[in-house]
């Protein structure tokens, strides 16, 4: 069976920059795919491209986005509008600004149902209450008439999720859904997303910068750096045996709760420099910060290779640390 969503060689271009280049990935029905990257990696633009909501200056210069057999890049505005909210839905990082402050949450949920399912006002309200119950908001009959400012951040994100799943979409894109929330609330919201995914048979694209979130809530991980996919793996493999120097560096640089590593034991491993150094880089975008870079890295962008089943990595010089116990063997 064809995957639910297939992105082929997607390239997004601004007049003077190419924030996403040759990006390919696919997602099966009911699966959670995490796209990880720091700011400037192009992960949010990718999400907007899936929704065909790119900023005006940005153009899809190349590639296809196939969803349910249709190429989204070829749809006109009306067809896309029909798809948005009904088959593909999105939730954003800031639950504060993505809800309309002068409309009750019940009406905001109802709006989607009226547009896509042509429900009447009364039916929409009843469905809204049902949806609020679905996203575990206590006393939904009362809450339905609340305004966004009367709710906490976590509650608002639940409302956003209720709006997103109102029409039982096949694909839900969650762009940093918990970044603005506290850890205890984050766990609640991600659990909710996961439950809904199973109940509604949705596929979820989870866009995040948080590796911990990826490990626990994703089925498959794509690591992006400066607009390119640098690694793809199952979360277990990624954390046990990261292959790309960037992924390795990230894991080494992040202090971990369960590791007994304290500042008295030594400094954290740094990835030198910042993502800005990738601008105008001819070869591998990570080369300026890479501790394994060599002259050939600046010649062309490295191809993705398949080092093991279910894995992809865009670095010709990387070898599993597991497979090669002696680090010296790495310098081919």
């Amino acid at each position: 069976m064809a995957p639910l969503l297939q992105v082929d060689n997607l390239t997004i271009r601004f007049p003077r920059a190419e924030p996403v280049g040759n990006l390919s990935f696919e997602i099966e029905q009911g699966e959670t795919l995490a796209i990880v990257g720091e700011s400037g990696s192009g992960k949010s633009l990718t999400a907007l491209a899936l929704m065909q909501l790119l900023p005006r200056a940005a153009k899809i210069a190349n590639g296809h986005i196939t969803f349910g057999g249709r190429d989204l890049t070829k749809l006109d505005a009306r067809e896309m509008r029909h798809l948005r909210g009904r088959e593909i839905a999105m939730i954003f990082q800031e639950p504060m600004t993505s809800l309309n402050p002068v409309m009750t949450i019940g009406r905001q949920i109802g709006e989607v149902l009226k547009v896509h399912e042509k429900l009447s006002g009364k039916a929409a309200r009843e469905r809204a209450i049902e949806l609020l119950r679905l996203v575990r908001i206590p006393a939904p009959e009362k809450r339905v008439d609340d305004y966004p400012h009367q709710l906490s951040g976590g509650m608002r994100q639940r409302v956003m999720i209720a709006i997103a799943v109102a029409c039982k979409p096949k694909l839900l894109i969650a762009d940093e859904p918990t970044t603005a929330l506290d850890v205890t609330i984050q766990a609640q919201v991600l659990d909710l997303l996961d439950t809904l995914r199973r109940e509604l048979q949705m596929a979820v694209v989870l866009i995040t910068h948080d590796l911990g979130v990826v490990a626990q809530w994703a089925d498959k991980v794509v690591v992006m750096y400066a607009g390119r996919k640098v690694e793809q793996a199952l979360p277990g493999d990624l954390f046990n045996d990261p292959l790309h120097p960037y992924t390795r560096g990230l894991l080494a640089a992040s202090p971990r709760l369960k590791h007994d590593f304290h500042y008295r034991d030594g400094a954290l491993t740094e990835i030198p420099g910042s993502i800005v150094s990738a601008v105008g880089e001819a070869g591998c975008p990570f080369r300026p910060r890479c501790n394994q870079a060599r002259a050939s890295c600046s010649h062309h962008v490295p191809q993705l290779i398949v080092p093991a089943a279910d894995r992809l990595v865009a670095c010709p010089f990387t070898t599993s640390l597991k497979a090669v116990p002696h680090a010296a063997a790495l310098s081919l």
């Binding site: 080494a252 971990r256 590791h259």
Partner: peptide, 17 residues
């Protein structure tokens, strides 16, 4: 041993250099 271990990575980096 987990490769996320910082010490391991650092020694690797040092040897590489």
């Amino acid at each position: 041993m987990s490769t996320t271990d910082v010490g391991n990575f650092r020694s690797l980096v040092a040897e590489r250099e």
